[in-house]
Simulated assay, not measured.
Amino acid sequence: MNILHYLKYFLFHAIGLFAVLALLAGGAYTTGGLLTVLAIYLLGDAVCGDDTSTPRFKHPWILTVQLWLALPLLALIVFTAVWTVSGGDPLGFGAWASALSGYDVLAAREATAFGHHVAAVILTGLMIGMIGTITAHELTHRTWDPVSMLIGRWLLAFSFDTSFAIEHVYGHHRYVSTREDPATAPRGRNVYFHILASTLKGNLSAWQIEKKRLQRKGHALFGWRNALLRGHLMSALLVLAAWAMGGVVAALFFVACALWGKALLEIVNYMEHYGMVRNPATPVQPRHSWNSNRRISSWTMFNLTRHSHHHAQGEVPYQDLQPFAEAPMMIGGYLTTIIVAMIPPLWHRLMTPKVLAWDRDYATAEERELAAQANARSGIAALQRSL
């Protein structure tokens, strides 16, 4: 096995460490760091093409440990970010970093203007989404592994989204591409409405799933065995830790980063399943998810891009997911598609032809009937004209 196949997934950690340096450097360096990360994804995916390789890994434990390392890495990123808005020097972190680097990070922090702190929120939330949620998505599917589950839930706590470990695995994967799935956006929906709707309905779904589990086991709903309540407590502890570092400002800063990280998850849900239809009584097939094989996104997001295979076989580890080049394809790489989704007129202009092509090329006869109903409800003239 070529060692490069292992190393390519460590690009994820390199980007996280780069974010730490950008946050510590302060000022324009933080904003420059954010722009650099965006450029890596946008330009990298545009220039580097697709990755359709399917290597076999002889030492998969290395890739598992690599996933576990996301927790200390994300903790370092968020600690650094919160430190940048703290009045003192928690744990002497600034003094230590200055002595180690020869660069006065304390002075740089004091000189950082408000606009660069906004960039820090965007960068930190992006890291919470990438290093926290994406890794947790992989780990919380490993329901047989208590270590992976624990690490995954703590990663999700950084975005106030430990409910994801319940609803995604036991709800979303069952109802994906149907009207019963909170994460599947119907045709014509605005992404900003979807963020709110999917968050609310996803938490309600997770509550119902956990309630049924506890009833089945004979446990009380309100108690320490309730994984949803424990998860929200984990997030609350992180807010308290931020408050302990820098008071109300630091706590609010962390909340803003966490909410942005959570919003990113829902934007990704939006673009992965937008407009898909399926009879919930039929098996999930690769055609029921939008796929992408862009190289940089695949390497730095643990093959989350190969979403069509993931939904067809949710138990398959990320390194074994197949590219499924014949599956319906997204607009581009993940960050590119996220940005397009955040501009609703552009999104609908680019996705409407794709949705109509899905109806024509991928849908079964039954699904075409469901698609026709979805088009009628969409409010999009081009979809309604297809009737």
Rank of each mutant, 00 (worst) to 15 (best):
Asn2Leu: 14
Leu4Glu: 10
Phe12Ile: 11
Ile15Cys: 07
Val20Ala: 07
Leu21His: 15
Leu35Ala: 13
Leu38Gly: 07
Leu43Asn: 11
Leu63Thr: 09
Leu69Pro: 06
Ala70Gly: 15
Val82Leu: 02
Val85Pro: 05
Gly87Gln: 13
Ala95Cys: 07
Trp96His: 11
Gly102Met: 06
His117Trp: 03
Val121Gly: 13
Thr135Gly: 03
Ala136Asp: 00
Asp145His: 12
Met149Asn: 10
Trp154Phe: 12
Phe158His: 10
Ser159Val: 14
Ala165Lys: 04
Glu167Arg: 03
Val176Asn: 01
Ser177Glu: 08
Leu196Arg: 14
Leu204Met: 15
Ser205Glu: 15
Lys212Pro: 00
Arg216Leu: 12
His219Met: 14
Ala220Lys: 04
Gly223Met: 13
Gly231Ile: 10
Leu238Ile: 14
Leu240Val: 12
Met245Ser: 06
Met245His: 00
Phe254Pro: 02
Ala256Gly: 11
Ala258Arg: 06
Ala263Asn: 08
Ala281Ser: 05
Pro283Gln: 15
Arg287Ala: 12
His288Gly: 01
Ser289Phe: 00
Asn293Ser: 06
Trp299Asn: 02
Met301Thr: 12
Phe302Leu: 12
Arg306Asn: 03
Pro323Ala: 10
Met329Arg: 15
Gly332Thr: 04
Leu335Arg: 02
Leu356Pro: 04
Tyr362Glu: 14
Glu369Gly: 15
Leu370Lys: 11
Leu383Glu: 07
Arg385Lys: 15
